[in-house]
């Protein structure tokens, strides 16, 4: 193995930063899951978050989306400090999350799942007084967004349980894409998928980015990360070890940083 080239953090360009975290701390009892982590997501990019098991990736995502409350530090959305009380708060601000366990209702059809919790009502008195769902419009919207994402499904009225694993993942990703106004976060969306199905989901992630939404992608799959990501955020021991570009760094470099074989100067905190 050749000696890695000197690793330089990518300078952050403070214009166009959508979501940012500064010095965020999260402790579970004596365990410090996040130890002053920084994070930034730029407009229009796919940012991969990688790191060993227990490095703090999921905790970071939860802190960003209000699923846990940080013990210190601050989070900024479009440069403005935010304090999310729960995942619903983050969703109201246009942040969509694809959870690892997908959060779909298997017996309901695809359209119902896409609109779950955000069903559309009919216009006029039928909607306001009789609370009647606008099933037709939800189906149309579902079909349209699937088409826009170039995601092929048997029929929008199929129950989700009748779909393959990749197709289900597609539904969860499409739901995020349909409602996200700011950004989409995905926690290991290709875990346990076959090669072909993984390919489908990766296509979806690209399609979301092409719609202009930045994406945060947590993954252990290095080839996927290198195929998709514009930048790679590397977590180690509750901190950001480095942010690198797949164009300038190899998988070996990233693994070396992840495992602590190579140490990097932090952009924001050169003291480490």
């Amino acid at each position: 193995m050749k000696t890695p080239a000197p690793l330089q953090p990518i300078p952050s360009d403070s214009a166009g930063i959508v979501l940012e975290a500064r010095n965020v701390v999260k402790r579970y009892g004596h365990m410090t899951a996040l130890d002053g982590v920084d994070f930034e997501l730029r407009a229009g990019e796919i940012l991969a978050v990688v790191g060993d098991n227990g490095a703090g990736k999921s905790t970071l995502i939860k802190a960003l989306t209000g699923a846990v409350h940080p013990d210190g530090g601050e989070i900024l959305l479009d440069g403005e400090p935010v304090h999310f009380k729960g995942p619903l708060d983050a969703r109201h601000r246009g942040i969509e999350t694809v959870y690892q366990d997908l959060a779909v209702a298997p017996a309901l059809d695809i359209a119902s799942n896409l609109f779950l919790g955000r069903e559309l009502r009919r216009p006029g008195i039928m909607g306001s007084v009789f609370r009647r769902l606008d099933k037709k419009r939800m189906r149309q919207e579902a079909e349209r967004s699937m088409a826009e994402l170039k995601f092929r499904l048997p029929s929008i009225t199929n129950a989700v349980e009748a779909l393959s694993g990749g197709q289900r993942q597609g539904v969860a990703v499409a739901r995020a894409a349909l409602f996200a106004r700011k950004l989409v976060i995905m926690d290991e969306p290709t875990a346990a998928l076959g090669v072909r199905e993984t390919g489908q989901v990766l296509e979806l992630i690209r399609a979301i980015r092409d719609r202009g939404l930045p994406v945060v992608l947590i993954s252990h799959n290095m080839p996927n990360v290198f195929e998709l990501a514009d930048r790679i955020h590397i977590m180690r021991l509750g901190r950001r070890a480095a942010v690198v570009s797949p164009k300038t760094h190899s998988m070996g470099d990233v693994v070396a940083i992840m495992t602590g074989a190579t140490r990097v100067e932090e952009a924001r905190d050169p003291g480490v």
Binding site: P87, L88, R91, Y99, D101, L102, A103, V104, A105, P106, A107, L108, S112, L116, G117, R118
Partner: peptide
């Protein structure tokens, strides 16, 4: 229906 299918999924989508 959603709750009967999966209460956790229902919670995560904000029900």
């Amino acid at each position: 229906y959603a709750i009967g299918n999966s209460p956790e999924a229902a919670r995560l989508v904000g029900i």
